[in-house]
């Protein structure tokens, strides 16, 4: 899989630029602003985390990046092109794995290839993606037979099989137990390092953001504005107990207005 991706794409990962992006919902006739003039620049192959209190509009921002919704104002550009509709080069892994219950793990992973008519030519990639997430033996299992962690791995494989240039992660580990979570965090980093797509992670877990991302964008309460940016240039794998890590974590908590409680 890694080799396939590497040879397919010399220039891996896409760039992403958000210019003055604002968005609001209509709630029973009342406009509800969720995003307030977000400006963000993400470089090729970067791992950026969006951190904010729950309900602040992080997931809305990701839906805009994915092209599932269009912003009320502002523009989103990837690789020089405006984002108008979903595109398989930008794949989302949602908080809920949402595997199709009527398909086996194998054909769930095959979904993207099937949708684009590539199943016949790129069949082998499914096996590769399953191996990458450690689900080789479960190709013929149905989703309800998987544990939460395995289902999320399958969802990850379903995303990776499309060889994304931008992987959008919407709290993908949010529903996992803490042990599985720690293991999956390490796996995500190594997947990102090997495949070097650009990654955009939404989370409300400070440690997770700092463990995985090179840059943590701290968002305010709704309507979300960018409050601060914390750069973590530590090499991987990072350790939660490392003094510099602890210092960064304190800094982020401070930005979130939780310094006293901490």
């Amino acid at each position: 899989m890694v080799a396939v991706i590497a040879s397919d794409h010399a220039a891996r990962g896409s760039t992403l630029t958000l210019r003055e992006v604002s968005h609001r919902f209509d709630l029973e006739g009342q406009p509800l602003p969720v995003l307030d003039r977000i400006n963000l620049q993400v470089g090729r192959g970067e791992f950026v985390a969006l951190l904010g209190p729950s309900g602040c509009g992080k997931s809305t921002l990701l839906r805009l990046v994915a092209g599932l919704d269009t912003p009320t104002a502002g523009s989103l550009v990837t690789d020089g092109r405006e984002i108008e509709a979903p595109d398989p080069s930008r794949v989302v892994v949602f908080q809920d794995p949402t595997l199709y219950p009527w398909r086996t793990v194998w054909s769930n992973v095959a979904l993207g290839l099937e949708a684009r008519g590539l199943l016949r030519t790129h069949r082998g990639r499914i096996e590769d993606a399953l191996r990458l997430v450690g689900l080789t033996g479960f190709a013929n299992a149905y989703p309800h037979q998987l544990s939460g962690g395995m289902a999320q791995r399958a969802a990850l494989a379903r995303a990776l099989v499309n060889d994304p240039k931008l992987l959008i992660l919407d709290e993908p580990l949010g529903q996992l137990d803490s042990l599985t979570r720690i293991a999956m965090q390490a796996e995500l980093v190594s997947l990102w390092q090997r495949s070097s797509f650009t990654a955009l992670l939404v989370t409300h877990d400070v440690e997770e953001a700092l463990l995985l991302a090179g840059r943590v964008i701290v968002l305010s309460h709704r309507p979300a504005r960018i409050k601060a940016e914390v750069v973590n240039s530590q090499p991987y794998p990072r350790h939660r107990g490392d003094p510099h890590f602890v210092e960064l974590r304190r800094e982020v908590f401070e930005q979130l207005g939780l310094d006293e409680a901490w």
Partner: peptide, 12 residues
């Protein structure tokens, strides 16, 4: 969510 998934994967 089923539709969202398929749409981001390039479904017609």
């Amino acid at each position: 969510a089923y539709y969202d998934i398929a749409r981001t994967l390039g479904a017609t």
